[in-house]
């Protein structure tokens, strides 16, 4: 019995914790709209918090941002327009995924470039080793080897 009531308490507490942010009741005309709202609020970063999305943050500015996302969705704005709206005010900081543009080519491109450079280096090393083992004997060494083999045969 004690176990059951403890379990119930834990369940209730976790429900309350989950509702801390979810106490805003929003009406979505369409499930797609709701899905877009969820995705947008999960991909926008709270400017006040160091690393929390606005759907997960109790900061007042996050609540304001959620209100704006909802209002802009109702106005029929696209996801891109809503992200632009937030970036205009709060900067690139609010995007969890930096956009691919002039300033971020290095950021997005560097990992790929490093993989390619690494592959080339490995390839060069393997090739050099292979060549080195094929040419392992110099002319003198080969002559000496032949000599030894010949001596073996004649004896």
């Amino acid at each position: 019995m004690a176990v059951i009531s403890r379990c119930l308490a834990v369940i209730c507490l976790s429900l309350v914790a989950g509702m801390a942010v979810a106490d805003e009741v929003r009406e979505f005309g369409h499930p797609v709209m709701e899905q877009r709202y969820r995705e947008l609020t999960a991909s926008l970063r709270c400017p006040k918090c160091e690393n929390q999305a606005i759907d997960d943050s109790n900061s007042p500015v996050s609540a304001d941002m959620r209100d704006r996302v909802y209002a802009l969705l109702q106005e029929g704005r696209s996801d891109r327009e809503i992200q632009d709206f937030m970036v205009d005010r709060f900067g690139d900081y609010v995007l969890y995924n930096p956009r691919l543009e002039g300033r971020t080519y290095l950021l997005w491109g560097l990992p790929a470039v490093l993989v390619v450079v690494g592959a080339i280096v490995v390839l060069l090393i393997v090739r050099a080793r292979r060549r080195a083992s094929a040419q392992a004997l110099s002319a003198d060494e080969r002559a000496r080897l032949n000599e030894l083999i010949d001596r073996e045969r004649t004896e």
Partner: peptide, 12 residues
């Protein structure tokens, strides 16, 4: 309501 603050990108 903090509307002007929001337009300015104020977060605190």
């Amino acid at each position: 309501e903090g509307d002007l603050g929001f337009e300015l990108g104020v977060y605190g």
